[in-house]
Nucleic acid binder design. Structure first.
Lengths: 199, 199, 199, 199
DNA sequence: AATGAATGAGGGTTCATTCAT
DNA sequence: TATGAATGAACCCTCATTCAT
């Protein structure tokens, strides 16, 4: 008597599977047939829920927007200070913690994303975030550091995955300390923002 | 009797144009027709010089190997020290300086590269480099930092491009100081390697 | 308790909208989704009222049959004479006056109609009409003229539309005189029927 | 030893077969697969010769332009007179004589053609022709008659085909007299151009 | 009287690749 | 050292249609 398709939430399942495949094989190399097959439906079924392949991607991205927007909103209400700057990094890191697959996807599919309109929207969000991390009159280096700092959060996650895979007689690393490392490195990068170049 | 195409080195021109297009639109979305068109030859001509599309990519990657291999070779002959570690970062940065397009390509086409055998070879090289940056008994954090440090070099280059694009009435930033910033950030990240976690 | 859709006559509204779209974009290029959308219902709703797409078309055609059948019926009871012939043309023209969209559709979708069984029925009707326009022993030219005459009625309507669109600072032409022109031209063509070829 | 594909003129053969199928089943209902199949090649082969399905159609249409353009060119050099008007009709009729399939296609696929850019070009040509058929200060009726006259040429051809098919114990009609009838009818319609409305 | 979800068939198009010349 | 012609597989997408509710 139980339904075979685990609920009417096909739309959500599509987004799920799509993200999984997109992040694994890339957006271009993932065909709608693969997505449909893995879901046990027809390609045409996807088109009942999404107007276009790009639309599926947009659906994915939207599911990531919330935490970033919240971080931006919070940041806008604070006066600038190094503590606020660090807090933004922290909030960003936290917000992204359970969205690693999406982050990987974003990082590894830039050429696609860049040309796909959804990319512009994401980019703008990131730029806004970085602006809140910079002091009143940021130098070029300040701005680069802000951007790199956030990106380090992203990158570190899957770098540490790779590091773990590499011959590891060691103990498996728990997710929290992985995140802690990411945060530490990101804050390192952010720390020099606003300080005079000591070159 | 003079050659009709500027030089007979069509092969090199193919690699050139291919890299340009691959890095701009991505490997998957770049068709051989586009490459051929921009070169003013036929698709079939490409097949005279390369056996497959993947082969072109291999050609590209090979042209990047040298400086990394040299850095590895150099590093292997030095006993480990923080100075050596920094020097490796420096050499890597320098070697990559005029290969930014390739770096971008590598970064932005991971899903493709991962599945393309040429990726494995590149990854191994990078791992070797990072190993030389780590002390004798690296912690997990040490290893992550080493990897992130190198990746920061890559990432910073095109992050700063983006930062420049963003509205700035300021002076255009010259390539050297761009590289200097990249290096500084990378060294920041590397600096804590080997130090006890002060969390 | 009032009906939610203006009237319960959805069926008629479907035929209406369908004809509008069929005549504008053609039968093949008009999808059931477009029809449904414009009506504010679902595709599936159409299937409550019609068994197939072709059925909708049949519905359309049927709504046009009456005046032609009447003209035929009338013609059959008259003995042939040039006056009767002209009267048939007149009645046909009048009957079609408020069915221009349908005429256009018929004219411009012949390949479809030809293969759709509804086409045969319509064609037969037209042939019957032309027969009544021909004298007792029609020559080939007589028969052609009869057919062309009727077709001129159809064609003229949307030709004159096109002519109006074409740049003319002149007064907009009222429908009646448009019809008058159509009729005049059609009668011109019919006039020579039965006369010896004066070639 | 003879080549199986009857020559390297694939491009021309495509146009040929395409026109045949387009005019028989309509543009929309004719799939590239059908065209390819009948030619004994792959769909992809069509794309070597034409960029698009629409392009095939454009190829077809271009092959019809010449005689019309010539008629226009000739007409432009003559001062207007009823004789010139009739001569234009004659030249048009002659030019179209061996292009009946194309004419049929044009007539029966208006909805498609209208939206296909190639339609605009054709329409302009026809308008130009009709302008040459009108006197200096044409009334609305004059302009309609000019347009109808030309269209009668087109229509008559396949009307008379239909008339022949219809039960014909009679002798088969030879093409020349068919054309003669068409011309006669068209000239009938044109004759009243410029005369005061005798309504 | 109508909908939501899905399907199967087919559409036009693009691609990497081949091969005789 | 290249090209012209072609292919086979796959792609994204659309459509008419169905059926349980």
């Amino acid at each position: 008597m139980t339904t075979q398709t685990p609920r009417g939430d096909t739309r959500a399942r599509i987004v799920d599977v799509a993200l999984e495949l997109f992040s694994e094989h890339g957006y271009e190399k993932t065909s709608l047939r693969e997505i449909a097959d893995r879901l046990g439906v027809t390609k045409a079924a996807l088109y009942y829920h999404f107007r276009t392949k790009e639309d599926i991607l947009a659906g994915i991205v939207d599911s990531m927007s919330a935490p970033i927007d919240e971080a931006i909103a919070w940041g806008r209400e604070q006066p600038y200070s190094p503590e606020v700057r660090d807090e933004i990094v922290r909030r960003f890191a936290e917000g992204m913690a359970d969205r690693q697959r999406l982050l990987r996807f974003f990082h590894e599919n830039q050429p696609t994303i860049r040309e796909l309109s959804v990319g512009t929207r994401f980019k703008e969000r990131m730029i806004n975030l970085t602006r809140l991390m910079q002091g009143p009159e940021p130098t070029f280096e300040d701005r680069v550091r802000a951007a790199v700092s956030l990106m380090v959060i992203n990158v570190t996650h899957f770098i540490s995955e790779a590091v773990e895979e590499e011959q590891c007689g060691n103990e498996p690393v728990d997710p929290e300390s992985r995140q802690a490392v990411a945060l530490r490195v990101a804050l390192d990068v952010a720390e020099q923002i606003g300080k005079p170049a000591q070159d």
